[in-house]
C-alpha cells in the first residue's frame, strides 16, 4: 500500500513538473519518466499487457515522437517570459489581470468539485460487489482458460473476447503511424 502511495505521489509530482517546465524537451523527458512509473502501477494492478503498452508507447515511442516534433519546430515556449509579468503599473490592466485569474480559479474549482462529486458514488477499490465484477467478470475468471487457452485474463479479454475492438484499435494506430511517417519523412526539394 505504501509503495502504491509513493508511486502515485511521484506521478503527481511529474505531472506538475511537466506543466511548469518552460523547456519543452525537458517536459517531454519528464513525461517519459511519468510513463515508466505508470507502467509500474499497472504491473502492481496485475495488468501486465497494459503496463507493457504503457512502457513501450508512453516512455519509448511518445518521447521519440515529441523530440522529432521539437526538431521540426522550436524548443522554447512562446512568450514564456512575459506570461509571468502580469502586474504592471496600470490600474485597468491590473483589474483585468485579477479578474482573469479569479475567473480561471473559479472554473478550475468548479470542475474539480464536479469531478470529485462524480467519484463519490463509485464503489471502493477492490470491492467484490462492484458492478464491474458482478456481470461478465466471473465468466472470464472461470472459463477464459478453457475457452481461449490464454493464461492471463486481461490478455484473454483484450485479444479474444474483445478481439474486434482490439482490431479496430490496431487500425487506428496503424493509420496514425502512416500519418506520422508521412509528416516526418524527408522533404524533397
Amino acid at each position: 500500500m505504501a509503495l502504491d502511495l509513493i508511486l502515485l505521489i511521484i506521478i503527481v509530482i511529474c505531472a506538475f513538473a511537466a506543466v511548469q517546465m518552460r523547456d519543452l524537451l525537458s517536459a517531454a523527458l519528464v513525461l517519459g519518466a511519468c510513463s515508466l512509473i505508470m507502467a509500474v502501477i499497472w504491473t502492481r494492478l496485475n495488468a501486465v499487457d497494459v503496463a507493457f503498452t504503457e512502457a513501450s508507447v508512453g516512455a519509448g515511442i511518445t518521447t521519440v515522437l515529441m523530440i522529432a516534433a521539437l526538431s521540426r519546430t522550436r524548443r522554447g515556449e512562446e512568450g514564456g517570459e512575459e506570461r509571468d509579468m502580469g502586474w504592471v503599473h496600470d490600474g485597468a490592466a491590473n483589474k483585468r489581470f485579477i479578474f482573469r485569474h479569479i475567473a480561471m480559479l473559479i472554473v478550475v474549482l468548479v470542475t474539480m468539485g464536479v469531478l470529485i462529486y462524480g467519484t463519490m458514488d463509485m464503489p471502493d477499490f477492490g470491492d467484490p460487489d462492484a458492478p464491474a465484477h458482478t456481470h461478465v467478470a466471473r465468466r472470464y475468471i472461470e472459463k477464459s482458460r478453457e475457452e481461449t487457452g490464454v493464461k492471463n485474463f486481461v490478455t484473454a479479454v483484450l485479444v479474444s473476447y474483445r478481439g474486434y475492438d482490439t482490431l479496430g484499435e490496431t487500425t487506428v494506430i496503424f493509420t496514425a503511424g502512416i500519418a506520422v511517417v508521412l509528416l516526418l519523412r524527408k522533404q524533397r526539394r
Binding site: T63, I67, K186
Partner: peptide
C-alpha cells in the same frame, strides 16, 4: 534507452531523420 538514443541524436545532429 530508446528515448535516450533519440535525445542524443537530436542533440548531436539537431534532427532525428
Amino acid at each position: 534507452f530508446i528515448a535516450t538514443i533519440a535525445f542524443l541524436k537530436y542533440r548531436e545532429m539537431g534532427r532525428l531523420d
